[in-house]
C-alpha cells in the first residue's frame, strides 16, 4: 500500500524556527520562562500564564499514543493521532511505518521525519 504523501508545511514568521529545526531533523516545542510549563502547538505567548517570555526547546522525540484514528476511505489510508510527548504536551501528528490495525493507545513511539511534497520534512511518529 502506498504511503500518503505529506503536503508542504505552512510556515510563517512565528513558526519558521520550528520548520528550520525540522529541516535539521529536530523537533521543537515551546517552554514558558514565566510559569515553566511546556506547551504545544508552539506560539509566542504562553497559553497557560499569558507570558510572552517563551523559548524554543528541543524535544527528545519520545512519546506515547494518546489517541488515534486511521482514515480508511481514501486511496492511501493514514493514521491521525495525538502523541503525548515525553516533555508533557500532546501533539497532533501521524503514526507512520506501522501496521494501522495494531496501533494502541499507550504505545511507545518516536519521532521520524518524512519528506513532504516540497520544503522541510514533516515530523511524524513511528512505533518503537
Amino acid at each position: 500500500m502506498a504511503e500518503r504523501q505529506f503536503p508542504a508545511a505552512i510556515a510563517n514568521p512565528e513558526s519558521q524556527p520550528y520548520w528550520d529545526a525540522a529541516a535539521k531533523g529536530k523537533l521543537l516545542l515551546k517552554a514558558c520562562k514565566g510559569c515553566k510549563k511546556n506547551f504545544f502547538y508552539p506560539r509566542s505567548i504562553c497559553p497557560f500564564c499569558g507570558s510572552s517570555d517563551t523559548e524554543w526547546k528541543e524535544a527528545s522525540g519520545k512519546g506515547e499514543i494518546y489517541s488515534h484514528s486511521t482514515m480508511r476511505r481514501v486511496p492511501e489510508p493514514y493514521a491521525l493521532a495525538y502523541v503525548t510527548l515525553a516533555e508533557g504536551p500532546k501533539m497532533l501528528t501521524n503514526i507512520v511505518d506501522c501496521d494501522f490495525d495494531a496501533l494502541k493507545i499507550g504505545q511507545k513511539v518516536h519521532v521520524v521525519f518524512k519528506p513532504a511534497k516540497e520544503g522541510p520534512p514533516i515530523p511524524a511518529f513511528a512505533p518503537d
Binding site: I10, A11, S15, Y18, Y41, L80, M91
Partner: peptide, 11 residues
C-alpha cells in the same frame, strides 16, 4: 494559528 503545526496531517 494551528496551520503551521497541523495542516500536514490530514485532519
Amino acid at each position: 494559528p494551528d496551520a503551521s503545526y497541523e495542516s500536514p496531517y490530514g485532519i
